[in-house]
Design a protein around this nucleic acid. Structure first.
Lengths: 66, 66
DNA sequence: CCATACTAGGGTAATTCGGGGC
DNA sequence: CGTGTCCGAATTACCCTAGTAT
């Protein structure tokens, strides 16, 4: 019952996708990924959303639910 | 109808935004978030205010309204 | 009153933001 | 069209000690 969506920083997401943090920011600006902004203007991304995109939602996601 | 504004500590708010507790304190100092001070000088934040900022953007707020 | 966890404050390093151009 | 890199500016993260909260 862990429905807690951890928030990741642009650098974290960029490291997962092997891209530049700036590219992640572009995805958020293009609306391709949900983004939460801090009062300071920095973006945070949901780990669930990122993981879903990482697996392309197709091919065979890791069965984390025995 | 829950008008109960629970008070959160800087650490709680920081965990929600995935930032450092010091950063939350800085937001209060900058007037970006309402802060209540304890007689000792520690800050407390309203859960309603924090959640409003958390979902101020778009993403998918879980409406827990049974 | 004692003990533990957390917070305030200042200062410095790292990261992120925004736009522009290739 | 999308990505990586440049710049300057802003925001955030981690270091420390002392005081507060429970």
């Amino acid at each position: 019952m862990d429905s807690e969506d951890r928030l990741l920083t642009p650098g974290e997401v960029a490291a997962l996708f092997r891209v530049d943090p700036k590219t992640v920011t572009r995805w958020a600006a293009a609306g391709r990924i949900s983004s939460i902004r801090t009062p300071g203007g920095h973006r945070r991304f949901r780990e669930s959303e990122v993981k879903k995109l990482l697996f392309g939602e197709r091919g065979g996601p890791p069965p984390e639910q025995p």
